[in-house]
């Protein structure tokens, strides 16, 4: 085929396409809906959550994954674009990690050492490790479908950040149910659960996001 013929046929296929951000929205929202249905049917809000809210630990436990979520979405978009610039968002993520470390340090300072272990293990670490990836699964699929329209320079990395995005969503949702409030618990088990989702995302991304 002559290159000019190819160009002519490409030009015939010139219907406007959805932007990447729109695609992410349309891919992610159905996944969110699936997770919310599962959440409301099987898990539900923690009893008395709103009367407990003023506690800084609970606030932090919910706000932190929400912040990571809000950062990971744009980061995934940047990584899915040729010549995207992920640096500012990576810096924000690093800052968030420092905040997490700070919360852990404050907790260690406030809580007597013989309680550390109890706070760390919590009531249901295993439930956390199962429910967060479970509620992240559908959003992860939607995110990957959206990013498939992109052109990531590093598909595995883009997949991992898609996992961070979906995992942080799952963690935010789970935080409204979880009875364990200590930053020690959050920093350990939430992080592990999200890392699981990121690993799945990286694996899927390195296959599915190649272009």
């Amino acid at each position: 085929m002559k290159t000019d013929d190819l160009i002519r046929s490409l030009a015939q296929d010139s219907a406007p396409r959805m932007s990447l951000a729109q695609a992410l929205l349309y891919g992610f929202l159905p996944g969110v809906a699936v997770s919310l249905v599962f959440y409301s049917l099987a898990i539900g809000l923690r009893p008395h959550l709103f009367t407990l809210l003023p506690d800084w630990r609970i606030l932090f436990k919910i706000a932190f994954p929400v912040a990571v979520f809000a950062c990971a979405g744009p980061l995934a978009l940047q990584l899915a674009r040729p010549r995207g610039d992920p640096r500012p968002l990576v810096l924000i993520l690093i800052a968030l990690l420092i905040v997490l470390a700070g919360a852990v340090l404050i907790e260690l300072a406030v809580v007597p050492p013989d309680l550390w272990r109890v706070r760390l293990i919590g009531h249901n670490a295993l439930v956390c490790m199962v429910l967060i990836p479970l509620m992240s699964a559908a959003p992860l699929v939607g995110t990957l479908i959206a990013l498939h329209r992109g052109a990531p320079d590093n598909p595995g990395l883009a997949g991992a950040v898609a996992g961070l995005f979906a995992g942080a969503f799952g963690a935010s949702l789970y935080a409204t149910h979880c009875p364990d409030d200590s930053p020690l618990f959050v920093a350990t088990w939430y992080t592990l659960a999200v890392l699981v989702v990121m690993a799945v995302g990286a694996l899927a991304g390195s296959r599915w996001l190649r272009w």
């Binding site: 290159t3 160009i7 490409l10 674009r81 052109a151």
Partner: peptide, 19 residues
């Protein structure tokens, strides 16, 4: 020329990734 056509196809299919 194979590669040129490959690039043109990719630019075509990924054109919505340009801001």
């Amino acid at each position: 020329e194979d590669i040129v056509q490959d690039i043109l196809l990719a630019i075509h299919l990924k054109r919505q990734t340009w801001i």
